[in-house]
Each structure stands twice: as structure tokens, then as C-alpha cells.
Design a protein around this nucleic acid. Sequence first.
RNA 1: GACUCGGUAGCUCAGCUGGUAGAGCAAAUGACUCUUAAUCAUUGGGUCGAGAGUUCGAAUCUCUCCCGGGUCACCA
Length: 575
Amino acid sequence: MSIALSEQELFRRKSLQELRALGINPYPAEAYDVNAWAQDINDKFEASPDKYKQVTVAGRIMTRRIMGSASFFELQDSTGRVQVYIKRDDICPGEDKTLYNTVFKKLLDIGDYVGVKGFVFITQTGEISVHTEELTILAKSLKPLPVVKREEDGTIHDGFTDPEMRYRQRYVDLTVNPDYRNIFINRSKVISTMRNYFNAQGWLEVETPILQAVHGGAAARPFNTHHNTLDMPLFLRIANELYLKRLIVAGFDGVYEFGKMFRNEGMDRTHNPEFTSMEIYVAYKDYIWMMAMVEECLETVAKAVHGNPVVQVGKHEINFAGPYEKLSMYDSILKYTDIDVSAMDEAALLKVCADLGIETNATMGKGKLVDEIFSEKVEAHLIQPTYITDYPIEMTPLAKKHRTKDGLVERFELFVNGKEIANAYSELNDPIDQRERLEEQLILAGRGDDEAMAMDDDFLRALEYGMPPTSGLGIGIDRLVMLMTNQSTIQEVLFFPQMRPEKKEQAKISTIEDFVAEGVPAPWVLVLKNMGINTVEQLKAQNPNKLFNDLGGMRKKMKLDIPMPTKEEVIAWCS
RNA sequence: GACUCGGUAGCUCAGCUGGUAGAGCAAAUGACUCUUAAUCAUUGGGUCGAGAGUUCGAAUCUCUCCCGGGUCACCA
């Protein structure tokens, strides 16, 4: 952050002081009772003009068109923009025209929050506008907003488009690019629709620990942290699965949680270190039941956002109405590569990978090799919602063994637009089987797989008390929102995507101590900084006579009750 | 992590094979009573991402670093 202020910022700070000098509080404390909004006025004024004879609107000034004693500006509120007409003699009926000539024309800027009381009318050129009868300053803006110009036909000039600045200063992005608000409004709609759907079935929304001593439930590298009082390492959760299953053990029929997960891995357009997942577990169900539930749920979500189940995503039209295509993992590989891997051992799979040009390494077990082939050759083809079912047991330590097929587990993943968005099992509830499967993970960890799952003895203890047959599901909410809002990067559906810290400009700013060492009393250092003198070098460059006079002026202006230095002292500072 | 493109005024961008840093919008001052990318006139505004090097001279060439975009790898 630069300490030095730009010319425009200095002008705005000056305007702020002048407002105060005129007895106007630029940041009033009182509530401002708004009773009308831009979109409502624009949509409904013509049908019922009588309702808009006395309106109060509030928002930011976004553009100004000033002509002598009358002006137009555009006010932006949470719903959009409405044009405001302001006429000097209307807001200044007497001799004193200060409010218009000085306050409105000179001291207000683009970005300031104001409130307008008045009546709605239509201008000669046909634009619905609010005729100002009373203007109130609600908050002064000290940094100039980027000015994005829009023509009638929607053409945008000087757009604020640099992704780095948009993500770092999302408040600016959403102010000057209000269309992006819709993504977040729809994000909220996706989540609330799912929540309502689950609640209607009688399932319970719960919260489980984010700080975990054992990071279980998924294969991923965690963030490490430390608790001081307990003096023990903790992990930010990579999954909440094992806690939710403990709650099924505890006797709830259905539990679900929307929450952040944290994975210490790479970042790109589909991965953010923290992301939102929804996990749900329902007792006495299996993964076949779960497929039908997901179809109904996602169709409901798509309808809530778009009014119908068909969603445009990139160049594809994706239909979320079920039932979805179902394909076993082995069949999907057979379908897209003509290779039957279902009966192969590790050596044969390694050869297939080599033939297909897929890189492998020594830590990969059979399950991982199959997954590699699938990711490389199948995933990208799965555009319409497709369930991939029945995974090799090696890659899925928490799912129940398949009821009829040896070596497989009852699991499905839902793929849409070539990406996985959901993962579900018939949950493993045989505690002895579960212990063996986690022990196999420890062997993988021993081979160097740093994502293999850890042993969780308390979870096993819970299973030993007995967990009913259960089906569980996880959905990546960010990726689902990407689909529902037709966005190709996860950063666009997160308000504040993870970024490297902004580089601090090496502020060559001298400290208060540096100035004190030159003989400047501490209270005066602040005055100097207020005058734009931020370094000792700048101080040395001053004309002592001028500085002495200016200090007197600042002392009066800032109403400072500190002793004035003598001229000789000021000369000493500068020498 | 690799490759690649980029970082110049508050914002969007130009700036050639090195020669005093430019435009539009925004800002300041003035004119203007229905404008709408308002208009007209005048003016100010830059450590050209940071540092080092080559050179009489670097926004421009070289190297290192920082930040971001894209592609790939890793990864759900």
C-alpha cells in the first residue's frame, strides 16, 4: 500500500475538510430511511406513476453530467442505477446557492454515497429520473473508482477487467461491474435450495470440527496448525465425512453440512485452497437410492436458478433432469479406449498406462492406476450428467464392498461437463473390514503416497458400536455453482479467491523516530505527514520560512493545541 | 513446478530497430437549465512492477527477483 496520495485523493480529502467547514458531516450517524430502489422505479413507474410522487433513494454517484444550474447524475443502489435530476433553484430556493454550486458541483465526487428525496418523472429524452427535492451526503469516498462507461446498447468502454485487481479489490469489482453480483446471488440460491430440499426430508443440518487432530475422510494434503494451550498439532479438515458418520452412529436419520474444506495443494482455475463442500449421510439407504436423490436435488437447484433444468454451460446445453446415464468405471474405460482393465493386475495396468502414454510412478497401486487411465481417457467425454459407478476397492477405503462384484465397492461419482462434482458411497459400516482397509492405506503411505488416509481409532470405535446401513454423498459446491452460473474458473464464484499477498511498496517513509531525531516534536511529525512530507529528505528540501508559515496555518486549520515551534527551531529541522 | 504472455497517470491502453513519457476517460478551473460515453475551452497529474548490468543515454536491450493471466503438470 502506498502511503503517498495521488492528486485526486488529495483533492477528495480537501473536499472532505471543506464539507466539514460548511457544517456538513460527510459521515452522518443517523439512519437514512430509503423507500424506493432503482430497479423498482425503472420497472414500475410507468405503470403506476402515482406511487412514485415522494420517493427516497440512496446509493453511489456513478456518473455526473453537469450543465450550469441543472445536472443529471446516476445513482447506483443494490438493484441497479436510476438517473437523478438536480436543479439549483429547487434545492437552493433562497439566495444561498452553496448547496448546489459548491457542495454538489465541487465537493461531491463519483463514488460518494448520497440520499435523494424527490419525485419520479420522465425527461424530455424519455428517461425515468428522480427529481431532487432534498440531497443528503451519506458517505464521502476518498479513492476514485474506475469509471466504466456504458452506452445505451450495452457497449462498455474502459472496462475494469484486470482479474488481479478484480479479485484483490472485489468491492470495486462488484461496484463498477454489477453484473457479477448475479453469480453470487445465484450461488446463494443454489445453497438455499439444497438446504430447503434437505430440510423438507427431515434431515438435520449440523456442524462438525474444522480443527482436527487426525485428518481423515479424503486423500489430500492438509494444512498444519498448532494449538498453544494444548500444545498439540492440529489440521484444518480436508473432509468432514468421519464426523458425520459418527452422528449416524449416534442415531440421526439424516445429517448434512455445508462447510469449508482446506487442501494444501495446487491452485488453478478449478482449485482454491479452501472450498465449500456439502456432505450428507442418510441412514438405511444405499448408493442406488442416492442416485435418485441427487437427480431430484440437482433438477430442483437448476430450476431454482434458471427456471428450467437445462443449463447453458460454455458451448453445451446440460440437462439436469434425471435419470442420468450410469456407467461402471471399467465399462467407461472399455467404452472410450476399447481396453478391458477389469481383470488386470498391477503389472498389466502399468503396461496399459505405458501404451497410452500415461505417466506412472512406484507409489501407485492398482486403484490409482485405474483412476489415472480414467482421468486421462474418459473424464473429458462426460458432458451430460453421468454416474460412474463401482470403483476398484483399492482407491476407496471408506465404501462398502460391492454386493455382487468382487474387488469393487459401491460408489459413484457424478460427472458433468467433464468434471467430477459429486462422490457417493454405500458407506462401509463393518468395523473390522474398515480397520483392514485403513491399514492398507498405511501401507500405501509407507510406499510414499503422502495422500493416503490416516488411521482414526475413535472413528473405528464408533463403528464398533454399530452404524446402520447408510449412504453418503459429497458435492463440491463451488464447482456446482460454476456449472449453474456458466463460469469457467472457481475464482469467479468465490468472493475472495486466495491470492499471494500484495507486495508492500517499499515505503521509503521515515518513522516518527527519524523525525524526532532531527529535533521535530512528535505531535508535529503528524502535521508534517499531513502536509505530504513523509521523509527526512523531503523535510531537508523545504524552504524553512515557508514551512514555518505553513505550520502555523496547519495548526489553526487542524485546531491543534500544541506549542508552535520558533522559526529558529524550524530552520534547525531543515538543516 | 515448467512453458508462455503481461505489469506505463485514478481507470483503459499506445509508446517501432535505445534519444526529454502520450491518448481517451477520470481530476482541477471556467462556460452551459432536460443531459445520457453530455458538450466546449484551459490546466495539472508518472520512482514506465523492483533491483542490478550494458550504454554518452534505457519504458525500450541483458540478467535476477516480485505480482498476475493463459497452457501444461501435480491435485478432486
